[in-house]
Design a protein around this nucleic acid. Structure first.
Length: 879
DNA sequence: AACTCCCGCCATTAA
DNA sequence: TTAATGGCGGGAGTT
């Protein structure tokens, strides 16, 4: 023993009795339970060897065991594995899933400290939530898809993709340059970081989860938790889903301080990353790989978890958890409070909690309010913006409320619970009726409640979670759960339900961006870009619009819109502008526009970029196509500019095109192909948003990046929204447009020439449904065009042709197109083939990474594809 | 020698 | 003040 084990161990063995017979016994017992066993089996995976079960063997082995016991036996990954084995991936919400830290620590024979490490990471994924002291609640993978969707969104908003590329580039440069890395870094960072990314984020919460947390836990930062989320974001944002440790560490450090971190800091960060990576690995979300660059191989991890998550909004799972709206209301309130707390607390007051009891009351009152809202058209919404500038927000909020209400009224049925929940959803729903023109009936019969729960069965675990709620009815979804918050916090809608992002006060200061935000209190809500379209059916689209419109528009644009369309239906739509943009955008926009105009003609083709889509919704409102045209054009210009920027940046980056991406056959099949699953309302799917496909190009987000809204305190500022705004007329428009708009995506098919038309259409479409892959696919055209995506997919490999950066738009498009098509089929296939028009379709939920790429590529052509690193060879690591 | 990352001291924070 | 949490980095085990 002595030699191999550390002294400590020796001690332990002697005194502590880590592996006493008893402990083993416990292990065995736990292992014995069938349930557990299953879990284990499922996870057995890579870590060959022995798992908990083996302890026995260890005993038997005797001395050997010690050796075995030693390091590896105690790895966090293995420990996590054991831990996970004890709980089902999809726990029955109705029963209590409490986890007692003491028990766990005892049963797993580990020090508490280690449990904390695991819990923190799991908590960051919302797989558990702290219920009370020494007590956590197990959620399993119920909320995972939703969480990932949100994290992805947040990551995009923070331009992590860009940051990563920069860093990679920098590293490359270093290789060559002896010196200069530093200066470059700083510069790069400053530029980008200052713009958007720098806002430090706090812990990202989910609607259903935060409240509980609130009761007990105040500190939402906590490095490990936040770090874990950021780490995951990196994966979700990067194009090849591979993140090297050093890059990750730098980004994570960088956010806090640009200054070069000492090596120590770096080392510490890396240590933590290993810790996190180990649990993520045991969750099978990532795998260790090596990235080979010219130099040699670097440790890295590859994302092997779900690629796409649909909507999110409802993560169906927790029905029971958020049974009634009431709860939702509470949550929303709570979330706000929490936000405030966080913001405040960090600096000095931590006492915020004091009012805990009062909160409850508030919640109730809120609930009442909510009802009122439902009943009354113009009920106040409680949202306040810190930024006075964004008067729009209130409007938007009001709209949402209105929408919700309408929706409720219309669909009294099921959805109610969700109420506010997903604005998008609601909106969508509402729209649907209006849109009725659209093909599908609002609700397909489809889902049976049973199915939902069952979802998992078929597919892989992760994805299904996210099933969307059916438009009509199935109560099942109650999941509304999550959504409730949305209205309050953010507008975003999109796919993922609402989520709150907490910013660090401290971080704010440094940022220029911060300025807009008055106080540390500010909470930003992120909006998703809607690019994804809504469901093919118009319905979802509509909703998306409503909600999404949130996407920011440059102030100018907004103004225009308003003036133009004030009368029009959705003045409110013009959402808020991004604070971020605020500073810069106006100027930039003008300049860009000027430029764009010059080129405009040629570029129009190009237009179909996702960003454009995003913007569209905002402008779109105008029912009258003609009227809309102007604004649209402008918006287009802006978009174009942005795109250009992004494109340029990409080019500059020295990215290399990605060659091929292997898909996992299994995933594809299951996800995409499998019908079995769950039906999901189209609208939700839209949520999925891939918009991002962006990863590579993602950085571009800047343009696309939706706005962040800042809310100060929750106040009621509501603006009544008129049903009119939502009126059918608009919807109709959209509808027709929708299909075309689908174009946003890759369609080359659509005639490029009528760029304007497209644009308009898109806008409209966006309204109805921002381009979502799904939508696109739905269109017959697409299907036709698509070669045989399936085939390719089936193979599991997709090759992406390197596209020259330059020709991005046109030249690239062809290539990209093919790819894109692939995706589409995947996504929509079911629909197109079998279920066209239905509001529901199977969700492929997780899109394959490829899909993401493709998407991006399609729309934006080249940019997506590029990868920063020169050589990127990922090799699975065997260890 | 580089990569991993366990261990547990000790600062924070909650009760 | 005590207990619960969790940052952090030394340094051991692996490769």
């Amino acid at each position: 023993m002595g030699p191999l084990t550390t002294p400590k161990k020796g001690r332990e063995v002697g005194s502590v009795d880590p592996w006493t017979p008893t402990s083993n016994l416990k292990m065995l017992i736990s292992a014995a339970s069938p349930e557990i066993r299953n879990r284990e089996k499922e996870l057995c995976m890579d870590n060959d060897g022995r798992e908990e079960l083996d302890p026995i063997q260890d005993l038997d082995n005797g001395e050997e065991s010690e050796k075995m016991i030693s390091r590896k036996e105690k790895s966090l990954g293995l420990l996590c594995h054991k831990f996970l084995a004890r709980y089902p991936d999809y726990p029955n919400p109705t029963i209590n899933n409490d986890i007692c830290l003491d028990d766990v620590a005892t049963e797993l024979n580990v020090e508490r400290r280690r449990i904390y490490d695991i819990m923190n990471v799991l908590e960051s994924l919302h797989m558990v939530s702290r219920a009370a002291k020494n007590r956590y609640t197990w959620h399993g993978r119920t909320k995972l898809a939703q969480t990932l969707a949100i994290l992805k969104q947040v990551g995009q908003d923070h331009r992590y993709g860009q940051q990563m590329q920069q860093i990679r580039q920098r590293l490359l440069d270093k290789e060559f340059d002896f010196d200069g890395e530093d200066r470059e870094n700083e510069v790069m960072i400053d530029l980008e970081g200052s713009e958007m990314g720098q806002k430090e984020l706090f812990f990202v919460e989910l609607p259903g989860v935060e409240f509980k947390a609130a009761s007990v836990n105040s500190r939402k930062d906590k490095s490990l938790r936040v770090m874990s989320q950021k780490f995951v974001m990196l994966f979700l944002v990067s194009n090849p889903r591979v993140v090297s440790l050093d890059v990750a560490a730098k980004i994570l450090i960088g956010e806090d301080q640009v200054a070069d971190q000492d090596k120590n800091k770096f080392k510490t960060k890396v240590r933590r990353l290993y810790d996190i990576a180990n649990v993520l690995r045991s969750l099978k979300l990532i795998e260790k790989v090596h990235v080979t660059e010219e130099r040699g191989r670097k440790p890295a991890f590859e994302w092997v978890g779900p690629e796409e998550f649909p909507q999110v909004e409802d993560s169906a799972a927790s029905t029971s958890e958020c049974p009634s709206k009431k709860k939702s209301v509470l949550e929303s309130r709570a979330s706000l409070d929490n936000c405030a707390k966080n913001l405040f607390s960090s600096p000095e007051n931590k006492r915020s909690f004091t009012r805990h009891p009062s909160l409850i009351k508030l919640a109730k009152s809120i609930q009442d309010d909510r009802r009122k809202i439902n009943s009354a058209p113009s009920s106040p919404v409680k949202s306040v913006f810190s930024d006075s500038s964004n008067s729009d927000f209130p409007n938007k909020m009001a709209q949402l409320a209105a929408i919700c209400k309408i929706k409720l009224d219309q669909e009294t049925t099921t959805e109610d619970p969700k109420p506010a929940a997903a604005e998008a959803d609601v909106a969508a729903t509402m729209l649907q009726p209006t849109t009725s023109t659209s093909v599908e009936p609002p609700q397909p019969p489809v889902l049976s409640p049973t199915q939902e729960p069952g979802l998992d069965t078929n597919a892989h675990p992760a994805p299904h979670t996210s099933l969307a709620a059916p438009p009509t009815g199935p109560v099942t979804y109650i999941p509304a759960q999550c959504s409730p918050l949305i209205p309050v916090l953010l507008p975003q809608q999109r796919g993922s339900g609402p989520y709150a992002v907490y910013l660090h006060p401290s971080s704010l200061r440094p940022n220029p961006l911060a300025r807009p935000q008055p106080t540390s209190l500010a909470v930003r809500s992120m909006t998703f870009e809607d690019k994804t379209g809504q469901s093919p059916t118009g319905q979802s689209a509509a909703k998306s619009q409503l909600v999404s419109r949130a996407s920011d528009v440059s102030p100018l644009a907004l103004k225009r819109l308003r003036s133009d369309s004030a009368s029009e239906g959705s003045p409110s739509k013009a959402r808020r502008s991004d604070p971020n943009f605020k500073d810069t955008s106006p100027k930039l926009c003008e300049i860009l526009q000027a430029r764009l105009k010059a080129r405009r003609g040629s570029q129009l083709t190009h237009r179909p970029s996702p960003r454009a889509l995003h913007l569209d919704p905002e402008f779109i409102n105008t029912p009258g196509g003609a009227a809309a045209s102007q604004p649209l054009e402008q918006s287009l210009e802006v978009l174009l500019d942005k795109e250009d920027k992004t494109a340029n940046s990409d080019k500059e980056g020295g990215l290399t095109p990605v060659r091929a991406v292997p898909l996992t056959p299994g995933q594809l099949h299951t996800e995409t192909l499998v019908p079995a699953g769950y039906l999901i309302p189209i609208s939700q799917q839209s949520l999925i948003s891939y918009k991002e496909g962006q990863a590579s190009g993602g950085e571009t987000n800047k343009a696309s990046t939706p706005t962040y809204n800042i809310y100060k305190t929750p106040t009621a500022g509501s603006r009544p929204v008129h049903a009119q705004e939502i009126t059918p007329t608009n919807v109709r428009f959209h509808r027709p447009a929708a299909s075309p708009h689908a174009t946003q995506q890759p369609h080359h098919l659509h005639s490029p020439s009528p760029a304007i038309m497209n644009f308009t259409l898109q806008n409209l479409g966006l309204i109805s449904s921002p381009g979502s892959a799904f939508v696109t696919s739905q269109t017959p055209e697409r299907s036709n065009t698509l070669p045989s995506p399936l085939t390719l997919q089936q193979r599991g490999m997709v090759f992406i042709k390197p596209v020259s950066p330059v020709p991005i738009q046109q030249a690239a498009s062809p290539h990209s197109v093919a790819l894109i098509s692939l995706q589409q089929p995947l996504m929509t296939t079911p629909k197109g083939t079998g279920l066209p028009q239905h509001s529901f379709f199977h969700t492929p939920v997780p899109l394959s990474p490829l899909a993401a790429l493709v998407t991006t590529g399609g729309q934006q052509a080249a940019k997506t594809v590029y990868i920063p690193q020169r050589k990127l060879d990922v090799t699975p690591e065997d260890s």
